[in-house]
Amino acid sequence: MNSIDAQDTIEREAYFVYPKAFKKWHGAFLAGASITRLPTEVVEEEISTSPVLTAEYRLGLPKKWNLCLKLSSNYISNLGALHVSRSLINKKFALALGGNASMWFGHLELQAIKLKSYGVILSPQLTFGYDFRKYFLSVAAEVNYGFMRTFSNEEELATFKQNQSLFAIKIAIEQPLWKTHSFLLFSKLNYAQFYYQSWLSYSTLSDYLLYPEFGFAFII
């Protein structure tokens, strides 16, 4: 029923997550959305599904280094991240080692809530992928370290350390969709004590809970 053979080859570099190095100073732009299911133990009957819009830009640097800038937001939670990695294996099987430095900012003002929080997350990341010709399959693993500060009426209330607050595995499939544009489909298992999109719950649970994330994006 499906006609996957209609296109035998795909545009090279029609990928974003796949860790093979871009040509020097070649870039790609990605725009998409993701939705994360927040555990009811943390958010209870409040909003248990967190959608986020994302825009990313990846740039190929000399010597197989990669630079990626990411912005994502759902108004309440906003994140900016800088990702630097080096592609260590650049064949059909590709592997890159790198890290994210992210800063997030959350704010909400309602009748009973006047809170602002910001946090810093540092996360080493390992990505490997395989070029199946018709699609790229990539798997990325990361660990988060960070802290969060919270304020109300410009007065600091507390600082929370978040050591090894999250382990995540992201599985991404990238394939051409329309002309030279590609489509990215991913699911990410966040196994976390703290996940920045649920900052407003100020959860005290020390358990690692699963925050499954599902997303899609267009690579332009």
Partner: peptide
Amino acid sequence: KVNRILFGLFIILLHSCQKKI
């Protein structure tokens, strides 16, 4: 194997939400 792994992960992804405290 890739298919099996993918499908397995989807199942884990969905069923993981069932962990209840």
